[in-house]
Amino acid sequence: MKQFSILLQKEWRENIRNYKIFWIPCVFILLGITEPVVNYFMPQILEASGGLPEGAVFEFPTPSPDQILMAVMEQFQTIGIVVLILAYMGTIAGERNSGTATLLYVRPLSFLSYFLSKWTMAAAISLISLWLGFLAGYYYTLLFFEELEFSALLQMVGSYSIWILLILTLTLAASAILPNGGLAAAAAFAVYLLVQLADGLLGANWTISPMKLPGYAAAWLTGNPRLSEFVGAIGLALLAIIGLIVLGSWAAWKNKAKTKV
């Protein structure tokens, strides 16, 4: 674990100096703020766009706070995940292709520490971004709409964090396995979409499928998910994360000969 802290320091410096630690949270905060703000101004926006005939009775249902935060989650599910995958697709493949990994690999390197250092930094930035994004969204929801219990938000974001970690770990493992960042991103998307499709088509009874985590997370806003199913899905997701970390470390070791010399 001594190597882990040495390598984590390197990752820390990299993520500060390539500004990832600044711009990724910015993206999530903007996504989080946009939903409540756009919803709040929707009547004015519609009016300004002149789509309504003069004097028409204007009926626009005010969304509930949980609907707003669910819409924020939907933004994160699409744009947020795309940004994270693109930001971290080259984590390991990129070091191999540029040859910068060579001077690490010729040392007595623990590949588990190597993978974990990258995972820890990426996970920290992703989770900070996620939390800041939801907190910003929550703040504006309170400002423009109604109250929502803070504990419900905590439960929702906590559950959703596990889901984001799963996607992120998948991306890093793909980056360790595949020859370049583009392929890693494509593979991560493909796996994500395929599993989602399978879950959607066949998985009506797969109650502990990690793919249902976003749904269970959202359920905390209006009540709570069925506890046994929720715990099962979280447990399975954590197992998948550990499995992907082991796979990624092994693949990084296996592919060390592919680094540019």
Partner: peptide, 11 residues
């Protein structure tokens, strides 16, 4: 080990 074209983390 010194490779022929050593590459460093530029940052």
């Amino acid at each position: 080990f010194l490779p022929q074209y050593p590459q460093f983390f530029p940052w």
